[in-house]
Design a protein around this nucleic acid. Structure first.
Length: 470
DNA sequence: CGTATTTGACCGGCGC
DNA sequence: GCGCCGGTCAAATACG
């Protein structure tokens, strides 16, 4: 009896236990199924991640191979020219370098979209083959400046994508500017301008966009007339540029860009757009951050030979030729073309009006905070020393472009700008505006998504590559 | 003939 | 208020 009782009780216990076990087991099963689901999801995500990695690697390889091919072509052409021009140093012609990257030959004013052969232009022989690649990258887009960083809600007539399709007359333009298109002065004050100083023989440099001249003025203090151009890629594109020769050195061409393209950029427009956009973004982001006087004027000084163009000289014309209210960044690419000359040695920001501003110099990835400027011409004192510059120039050349005596101007700009530790965040903002279309007028057109993506990837590749090679 | 460039006139901002 | 100056317009002109 006892046994039976105990057996029965134990059986009940077993039943209870089995029931409890079943409950626990079912709970465990549920958890396991959830876990399995989570694992499956994780696996999918990991697979997608792997696919993305593979795609990214493919793109990296493609980009790298293209880059290698490009520099091989450049090298071949350089060697050809070395044979043709015996006894002359190949890299002693600054304008050639500018033509390579930004310049427009005066002999090909209207045919820059055609594929030119290298037979006609001995001087620009280096340019032509690479130009198909490079040209593409030469256009302006400041889309990130005012739209994504400054005033996302600003309802510019110029940023309206639909308006690009209806070409207004000049009177319409005037009306648009006066009534609802033109930003008020205080808004204008936040619009960045990018000034590029280059050595160029051509009347204007080829930046990948189409421009129409609409005016010319002789500014006071500079007998060289200033030409005004308007972007004609889209009828209502508000982007304008001013071209003026430097009075002290007539070989220097000062090109100032202003505004935002409201149309899809041609493929040839990537690098310059990215560079100027990045510069403008950096400038404007600086002006909108905690640096009160940061962002009125910026100068990117190129080359190791500061003796040729000291900084005070570099900045001499910029404030004169620029709108006093518009923050301006100057990309100075005027140094002569040694192997390192296209490597911008520093990017300086200063405010011509605010003596309490914090000048910041980017020197090949080394961020330095200077003392308050009492005079903008002191910017040069905060730049890297010549020895440091030359060291980094050599390192740069050895690591990246030793095979080539000529470096893409755009890449140089990119490199200089990407050296900024804050650059990526700024670019992230700029690119996010492009991706999301959250105000980037350039990229409102949905029809060029793939091309845009390619541009962004390329840009990202470029920035990643250059920053990783520091 | 269509398009691009030239150039004088005009407008608005700014300093005195 | 006035003049200066930078920027833009638009008719005239040039060019292909």
């Amino acid at each position: 009896m006892l046994n039976s009782n105990t057996r029965s009780s134990s059986a009940e216990k077993k039943v209870d236990q089995s029931v409890g076990y079943q409950e626990v087991h079912s709970r465990d099963l549920r958890k396991e199924s959830e876990l399995d689901n989570a694992k499956a999801e994780l696996g999918e995500v990991m697979e997608e991640n792997a696919r993305l990695k593979i795609t990214l690697n493919h793109m990296k390889k493609d980009y790298h191979s293209l880059q290698v091919r490009f520099f091989e072509i450049l090298k071949q052409q350089a060697s050809k020219k070395a044979v043709n021009v015996a006894g002359h140093r190949i890299i002693e012609e600054p304008e050639e370098l500018l033509s390579l990257c930004l310049g427009r030959s005066p002999r090909e004013p209207k045919s820059d979209r055609e594929t030119t052969t290298s037979s006609n232009f001995t001087k620009h022989a280096q340019v032509d083959d690479g130009e198909e690649n490079l040209k593409a990258n030469l256009t302006l887009g400041l889309g990130s400046d005012e739209n994504s960083l400054e005033e996302p809600n600003k309802n510019h007539a110029e940023t309206g994508g639909g308006e690009a399709s209806s070409p207004p007359s000049s009177k319409t333009l005037k009306t648009m500017r006066n009534e609802d298109g033109e930003p008020p002065p205080q808004v204008n004050a936040k619009r960045a301008r990018v000034s590029v100083r280059t050595r160029c023989d051509a009347p204007t440099m080829n930046d990948g966009c189409q421009w129409r001249k609409y005016g010319q003025k002789t500014a006071k203090g500079n007998p060289c007339p200033r030409a005004y151009y308007r972007c004609t890629v889209a009828p209502a594109c508000p982007v304008r540029k001013q071209v003026q020769r430097c009075y002290e050195d007539m070989s220097i061409l000062i090109t100032t860009y202003e505004g935002t393209h409201n149309h899809p950029l041609p493929f040839t427009a990537t690098s310059m757009a990215s560079t100027t956009s990045a510069a403008a973004s950096m400038l404007l982001s600086g002006s909108s951050t905690s640096h009160p006087g940061f962002g009125s004027t910026a100068t990117l000084i190129n080359g190791s030979e500061f003796g040729a163009f000291d900084n005070s000289r570099t900045q001499l014309y910029m404030p004169k030729s620029s709108h006093p209210l518009l923050p301006t960044i100057t990309l100075d690419l005027t140094a002569s073309t040694s192997s390192s000359s296209t490597f911008p040695s520093s990017l300086s920001f200063c405010s011509p009006s605010d003596s309490n501003s914090l000048p910041i110099s980017w020197g090949n990835g080394y961020l330095k905070y200077g003392l308050p400027l009492s005079d903008k011409t002191q910017v040069g004192s905060y730049n890297l020393g010549k020895a440091s510059q030359e060291y980094f120039h050599q390192t740069y050349a050895e690591k990246i472009h030793q095979a080539s005596s000529q470096v893409s101007l755009t890449e140089s700009l990119t490199n200089a700008i990407t050296s900024d530790p804050n650059f990526k965040s700024v670019i992230a903002v700029a690119l996010s505006s492009m991706v999301g279309g959250g105000g980037g007028a350039i990229h409102r057109n949905q029809g060029e998504g793939c091309e845009r993506m390619g541009k962004q990837l390329k840009w990202d590749e470029a920035t990643h590559q250059f920053t990783s090679q520091k």
